[in-house]
């Protein structure tokens, strides 16, 4: 029996494809703004949402989305307030996220650590049909936001001060970027897992920027690499019987290594051209 004969596997593949495709498109902005670890923290905060959902028996994706969105607002608020103390404040927020998640999940009746593991490292069997609808809606929000606000987001990432003198609402655009990262975290929660979801935002972008010369090309190649890594990793995890999150991230890191090797002759060619 082929793996596409299983309903759960088809859903998992689609969910993985979505996160692989869209996460690097947001990650490229995070890396440019030197906020590569922001997605990581957002995942930690979303974990509290998952814990709450288990405890209150609500749907995990909406609950995690609300928590992650609140986290995004809080993070941007802290970042706007202070640069040095902000660093510590963010750390506190992220620790709190993990602790809250594990605490609430442990208090939930009838839920073992296995349930939480599925959210931490992803799982092949947990993507429900109703989840898919939510994921498609969230991805549609990402696409529309990028189409409408992408140029302003790019201007802010390039130089926030100049962007402000062009009339760009820097604070609002920054918050919007944090919200998009929160959405990506929730989209990736089922397949990649909350602990590794930021990797799928960052690693494909880090791999792509070794050989690209423009922001747009980096985003496009990063997205292609993310898609490839997600699908290959997910299929691999099915055959090797490991959680999909680590498998996807290992494949993405492999892609990074391959491009690192390829990049040397490519750069040499460009400079001697």
């Amino acid at each position: 029996m082929g793996l596409l004969d299983y309903d759960f596997m088809r859903r998992a593949l689609l969910a993985a494809a979505l996160i692989g495709l869209f996460a690097p498109l947001i990650g490229v902005f995070l890396v440019q703004r030197r906020l590569a670890l922001l997605g990581d923290g957002m995942g930690h905060v979303a974990l509290t949402g998952v814990g709450l959902a288990l405890l209150l028996r609500t749907a995990p994706i909406p609950t995690a989305m609300i928590t992650a969105a609140a986290g995004a607002f809080l993070i941007e608020f802290i970042r706007a307030r202070s640069r040095t103390a902000g660093d510590v404040a963010l750390a506190l927020l992220f620790y709190g996220g993990i602790a809250g998640g594990v605490l609430f999940a442990s208090l939930a009746p009838g839920q073992g650590t296995g349930t939480l593991n599925a959210y931490l490292f992803g799982s092949l069997s947990t993507v429900a049909a109703s989840d898919l609808i939510a994921l498609v809606i969230l991805c549609a929000i990402i696409v529309i936001t990028l189409v409408v606000f992408g140029r302003e987001m790019f201007a802010v990432s390039l130089d926030a001060q100049i962007a402000a003198t062009q009339g760009v609402a820097v604070r609002s655009i920054s918050t919007m970027m944090a919200m998009l990262a929160a959405i990506v975290v929730v989209v990736g929660m089922r397949t990649v897992g909350l602990l590794l979801v930021s990797a799928i935002m960052i690693v494909p972008v880090a791999a792509a920027q070794q050989i690209t010369r423009s922001f747009r090309a980096t985003a496009a190649l990063g997205s292609a690499l993310g898609l490839t890594a997600s699908v290959l990793g997910l299929v691999g995890s099915y055959y090797v019987q490991v959680p999909p999150g680590p498998a996807i991230v290992i494949v993405a890191l492999g892609g990074f290594a391959v491009i690192a090797v390829v990049a040397v002759p490519v750069r040499r060619y460009r400079t001697t051209r």
Partner: peptide, 8 residues
């Protein structure tokens, strides 16, 4: 951190 072209 990310390549940005002159044109961009």
């Amino acid at each position: 951190s990310i390549p940005v072209s002159v044109w961009e």
